[in-house]
Computed example of a mutant assay.
Amino acid sequence: MFESAGSIVEKILREEADDRLPEASRPDYTNLLRNCNRRRQRQRPKDPTDMDFEVIIKKV
């Protein structure tokens, strides 16, 4: 969750992309970044709407 979208996309492309195929057949990098950020946005907690909220601190 705390990894940048760029590093996630780079890692996936290194693992899954086939360099032997033409570049036009690969997905657009900026579209992959947008898609990654949209999916990560859904996983984030909602912003509080009032001052009555609880802060949860997780110890690692």
Rank of each mutant, 00 (worst) to 15 (best):
Q41K: 12
L21M: 08
S25K: 03
D50G: 12
M1T: 01
R42V: 15
S7P: 00
R40T: 15
M1F: 04
L13W: 02
D28M: 01
E10M: 03
E23D: 13
V60F: 09
M1G: 09
Q43K: 08
G6H: 06
R14L: 13
E15T: 13
R44V: 08
I12G: 01
N31C: 02
K59N: 12
L33W: 02
Y29P: 00
K59Y: 14
L32R: 08
M1I: 03
V55G: 01
P45I: 11
D18F: 09
D19L: 13
R14C: 01
N37Q: 14
I12Q: 03
V9Q: 00
Q43L: 13
D19M: 04
Q43T: 11
T30V: 05
R34P: 00
V55H: 01
F53E: 03
G6S: 06
D47F: 10
S25Y: 02
F53S: 01
D50H: 10
L21D: 13
E10L: 01
T30R: 12
L13H: 07
C36F: 08
I8F: 02
P48W: 09
P45L: 14
R14K: 12
R34Y: 13
R42P: 01
K11L: 05
E54P: 00
G6W: 02
A24K: 11
Q43W: 04
V60I: 09
